[in-house]
Amino acid sequence: MEKGKAVMGVGRRWAVDFSDFSSSRDLPDPPGFSRSSLDQDDSTVSRQKKDAEANWKAQKAWEVAQAPFKNLMMMGFMMWMAGSTVHLFSIGITFSALWQPISALQGVGKVFEPYKDNKVDLLAQKLVFIALNLVGLALGVWKLNTLGLLPTHPSDWVSSLPPAPEVEFSGGGIPLR
């Protein structure tokens, strides 16, 4: 037996005999190919494609909804590294921690626009996205408080209080005779 050729009935299981090549285009199907998949109804195939696309959109929407969590971890680490003293770096980090969630909350509809579909309900993803951004906003407010930039003590409001009424008067230098 020559190398690469198989005798009918004897030989390797997946061997293909190329010695009987005819000029016609009627080639046998490759091993493992099934024509039954081609004969499926087009509506079934299109429905499966739509279901697969809806599942993909839902999965991507969940990824977008959970993306602010990664930002929370990074921002928390950066705030920790900035310390609790008021200087340019800590103010910049705090401003960024406040601005990013606010701008993300303003654009919730635009963020989930590519994933809109009749078969995909995006309410849960939007709520998770909003909740994580609110946590990020709370983290920024907490950092403002640790820096002492929030007016949380009564002494912060002294300038807006009216002056206390005078209870007692004193005078001096005028002799009584």
Score class of each variant (00 low, 15 high):
Gly4Tyr: 06
Gly4Cys: 01
Gly4Lys: 08
Gly4Thr: 04
Lys5Trp: 04
Ala6Tyr: 01
Val7Arg: 10
Val7Asn: 06
Val7His: 08
Val7Leu: 13
Val7Cys: 08
Met8Thr: 11
Val10Cys: 07
Val10Tyr: 08
Arg12Phe: 09
Arg13Pro: 04
Arg13Asn: 11
Trp14Pro: 04
Trp14Ala: 08
Ala15Ile: 00
Ala15Met: 05
Val16Gly: 08
Val16Asp: 05
Asp17Lys: 04
Phe18Pro: 06
Ser19His: 02
Ser19Ile: 01
Asp20Ile: 03
Asp20Tyr: 07
Phe21His: 07
Phe21Pro: 02
Ser24Ile: 00
Ser24Cys: 00
Arg25Cys: 04
Asp26Cys: 04
Asp26Thr: 10
Pro31Cys: 03
Gly32Ile: 01
Gly32Asp: 03
Phe33Met: 03
Arg35Tyr: 03
Arg35Glu: 07
Arg35Thr: 05
Arg35Cys: 01
Ser37Lys: 12
Ser37Leu: 09
Leu38Phe: 12
Leu38Trp: 09
Leu38Asp: 07
Asp39Ala: 12
Asp41Glu: 08
Asp41Ala: 12
Asp41Leu: 07
Asp42Met: 07
Ser43Cys: 03
Ser43Lys: 11
Ser43His: 11
Thr44Leu: 10
Thr44Ala: 11
Val45Arg: 03
Val45Leu: 07
Val45Ala: 06
Val45Gly: 08
Ser46Met: 10
Arg47Ser: 12
Gln48Ala: 07
Lys49Leu: 08
Lys49Gly: 07
Lys50Tyr: 01
Lys50Glu: 12
Asp51Leu: 10
Asp51Met: 01
Asp51Asn: 04
Asp51Thr: 05
Ala52Phe: 02
Ala52Arg: 10
Ala52Leu: 02
Ala52Met: 02
Ala54Trp: 00
Ala54Cys: 02
Asn55Pro: 01
Trp56Glu: 14
Trp56Cys: 11
Trp56Phe: 14
Lys57Met: 02
Lys57Leu: 14
Lys57Gln: 09
Lys57Ser: 09
Ala58Trp: 04
Ala58Cys: 00
Gln59Pro: 05
Ala61Trp: 05
Ala61Gly: 03
Ala61Tyr: 13
Ala61Pro: 03
Trp62Ser: 15
Trp62Leu: 13
Val64Ser: 11
Ala65Phe: 09
Ala65Ile: 02
Ala65Leu: 07
Ala67Ile: 06
Ala67Pro: 08
Ala67Trp: 10
Ala67Met: 08
Pro68His: 01
Pro68Gln: 03
Pro68Val: 04
Phe69His: 15
Phe69Ile: 13
Phe69Met: 14
Lys70Cys: 05
Asn71Pro: 04
Leu72Arg: 12
Met73Glu: 14
Met73Phe: 05
Met73Val: 15
Met73His: 09
Met74Ser: 15
Met74Gly: 14
Met75Phe: 02
Gly76Leu: 02
Gly76Asp: 12
Gly76Arg: 11
Gly76Glu: 09
Phe77Val: 12
Phe77Arg: 13
Phe77Ser: 14
Met79Val: 08
Met81Trp: 10
Ala82Lys: 00
Gly83Ser: 10
Gly83Asp: 04
Ser84Phe: 09
Val86Tyr: 02
His87Leu: 06
His87Gln: 14
Phe89Thr: 15
Phe89Trp: 11
Phe89Gly: 15
Phe89Leu: 14
Ile91Val: 15
Gly92Trp: 03
Gly92Thr: 11
Thr94Trp: 00
Ser96Gly: 13
Ala97Asn: 08
Ala97Ile: 04
Leu98Arg: 00
Trp99Pro: 00
Gln100Leu: 03
Gln100Ala: 15
Gln100Phe: 09
